[in-house]
């Protein structure tokens, strides 16, 4: 098959970008979307032109490296599928395809389709962990965890940090990403001691990173390749409110001493 691509090309962080047309001929429907780009890139390279830069690594939908807007949808038209797992059989011969990077102030473009998602790491740094220094753990079966909680924690922990939620959100909010981690750890007994502190710090960091606020459009949930539910955002709000209330109480008590 043959498709016509309109690809965002941008030489560097400060440079102005533009859409450039490429024809991708002799494409097999069994190719993944990224393999189709490989073919285009190989042809560009041989001509001495710079290939299209895009992040990718595992090509199995788990590392979260790949990510691009394909015809206006984060990761393209197929639900629950990352760009690397999307196959050309999702397109028809002769289709035009628009390919652009994630668009968000907090994810500046580095080159072409490559963006800087460092903000996600900083949100995790703010509190997306359990403080359990190596060596300090008790037996793994010492605290039984109801299967349901373990399963719900796993559902939220499945997030791959790709940034599709941000790219899909009209406000460029990172709420789904942040809420997924808060929910994962909040479902488990090990996550309880730091639960309130975590919610406050992570939400605060999210705001600092210039992500927009959540107005419950739900686009994030639609775009998420791992099916993370927007219910996690409700959980995040509950933890955050409770944490704010507790903090007020604590500072009132703290004020006397």
């Amino acid at each position: 098959m043959r498709v016509l691509l309109h690809v965002w090309r941008q030489a560097g962080p400060g440079a102005t970008g533009r859409l450039v047309d490429y024809e991708a001929a002799d494409i097999s429907p069994d190719m993944s979307f990224l393999e189709m780009l490989d073919v285009v890139n190989d042809r560009l390279t041989v001509k001495g032109e710079e290939p299209i830069a895009f992040d990718h690594d595992c090509r199995e939908g788990i590392c979260g490296s790949c990510g691009m807007m394909i015809n206006g949808a984060a990761h393209g038209p197929m639900k629950l599928t990352t760009a690397c797992q999307l196959h050309m059989r999702s397109f028809k011969d002769g289709d035009e395809i628009w390919i652009e990077p994630w668009r968000a102030k907090a994810f500046p473009v580095i080159k072409d389709l490559v963006v800087d998602r460092g903000a996600f790491d900083r949100i995790i740094q703010a509190g997306g962990f359990v403080s359990a220094p190596t060596g300090s753990a008790q037996d793994g079966n010492a605290i039984p965890i109801p299967k349901q909680n373990a399963d719900q924690a796993m559902d939220a922990a499945a997030c791959i940090g790709c940034g599709a939620c941000v790219a899909a959100c009209p406000n460029a909010s990172a709420s789904l990403f942040t809420a997924a981690k808060i929910t994962h750890l909040g479902q488990l007994p090990q996550g309880q001691p730091e639960r309130m502190k975590r919610a406050l710090a992570m939400v605060h960091q999210m705001d600092l990173e210039t992500f927009g606020g959540c107005t419950l459009f739900g686009e994030c949930q639609e775009a998420c390749p791992k099916g993370i539910s927007i219910d996690t955002i409700a959980q995040m709000h509950r933890d955050y409110m409770l944490a704010t209330a507790i903090r007020r109480e604590e500072s009132a008590i703290g004020g006397t001493g």
Binding site: V130, A132, P144
Partner: peptide, 16 residues
């Protein structure tokens, strides 16, 4: 043990 303490959501039986 270490991973459980960090919050790794290992698969569990109904008894937890």
């Amino acid at each position: 043990d270490q991973c459980v303490a960090q919050g790794v959501p290992f698969a569990r039986e109904y008894g937890g």
